[in-house]
């Protein structure tokens, strides 16, 4: 009797720990914790401010990574490599239409999101209808977007971001950056969508076993098209926020988001084969990628060797033995 009462909480703790360890996102969360402790130890800044500053940067990655996660979840090699180019295009469209005026922000943001939706639908069309492998189709679309961005960069006097957008992208409330709040809200919506809505569940079913889903009357086409469309819109949203953050459009603005968005998804624990997303992992993965960059910026590692350090940490994180998740 007495043994039972003492073991019960311990047992419950062990079970909770087990659940955490078995979850797909545990590695990313643990990795973030380790990196944060390491950075705090190395820095004269306090841990909380390091956390907030890096979360702010990670939020931009997280928003487009959630789109990437949904695409990857539909399985069959689905991936969106047009994200960095979609981001750049959105930055240019938003900047040019905004002309630094708050009154024009809704128009600029609306147009950017619409362009993003269109890009996503084109990706979806190529992959779903024309059956071009996603890795090729989305890269080809990306190159086209890149050319359009090059043309847009010749628009003279393209101006800056409106002050309202700058406040949203750079500012914070009660110490929490607005961009982080936006990323968290999107993540919550994405989680509800994936786990609770019919289209979301269909998206996962298609990714887990396209044939079984087909037998059950679920074609993969609609779900995949939807995922690409959402990814296009989220890349555009990332671009709009980056326009405010950088106060204008610059050619290299989207370039770091290809690797970052993919790595955030994979390190977060989303199955690259599809069918098993994790939104929490996606957020943690984005923060992890940002912290790695900060780590290599903080350590006095020679510039040329930094990519080796970053690549090494990513591989180490992925190679960590994972306990078999419950399915």
């Amino acid at each position: 009797m007495s043994t039972a009462t003492t073991t019960a909480p311990a047992h419950r703790l062990a079970r909770a720990l087990d659940t955490v360890l078995r979850s797909r996102w545990s590695v990313a969360v643990l990795g973030c914790a380790i990196l944060l402790v390491a950075l705090s130890a190395m820095s004269s800044q306090n841990g909380l401010s390091i956390f907030v500053a890096n979360t702010h940067l990670a939020a931009f990655v997280a928003i487009c990574a959630i789109g990437q996660m949904l695409v990857i979840t539909t399985g069959d090699g689905a991936i969106d490599l047009s994200i960095p180019y979609g981001i750049s295009l959105s930055v240019y469209v938003a900047t040019i239409l905004q002309q630094g005026e708050d009154a024009r922000l809704p128009l600029a943001a609306g147009a950017s999101l619409l362009v993003g939706l269109l890009v996503g639908l084109v990706n979806g069309f190529l992959v779903v209808v024309l059956r071009i492998p996603a890795i090729v189709a989305t890269l080809a679309v990306g190159f086209m977007l890149d050319s359009i961005v090059n043309l847009l960069s010749n628009v003279p006097g393209r101006g800056q971001a409106s002050s309202a957008l700058q406040t949203i992208a750079k500012g914070s409330i009660l110490g929490i950056p607005y961009v982080v709040l936006i990323a968290v809200v999107i993540a919550a919506v994405a989680a509800v969508f994936v786990w609770r809505s019919v289209p979301g569940l269909r998206l996962m079913a298609v990714g887990q076993n396209a044939r079984a889903a087909h037998v059950a009357g679920l074609g993969p086409g609609g779900a995949r098209l939807l995922a690409f469309a959402i990814s296009g819109v989220l890349a555009a949203l990332t671009g709009i926020l980056l326009c405010g953050y950088s106060n204008g459009a610059f050619l290299g603005i989207g370039s770091t988001y290809l690797v970052a968005s993919l790595a955030a998804v994979v390190i977060g624990g989303t199955l690259i084969a599809g069918g098993m997303p994790t939104v929490v992992g996606c957020l943690a993965g984005a923060l992890f990628m940002t912290l790695i960059v900060t780590l290599s910026n903080t350590l006095s590692v020679p510039v040329g060797v930094r990519w080796i350090v970053q690549g090494g940490v990513i591989i180490a994180a992925l190679a960590l033995p994972r306990r078999r998740p419950r399915t």
Partner: peptide, 24 residues
């Protein structure tokens, strides 16, 4: 500290922001 900005305003901004989170 040293960061890589790739001669690009946006890249430099992100890199400096990242480094500033830990720098004195």
């Amino acid at each position: 500290g040293e960061v890589v900005g790739d001669w690009d305003q946006a890249t430099a901004q992100t890199a400096v922001s990242s480094a500033l989170s830990t720098l004195p």
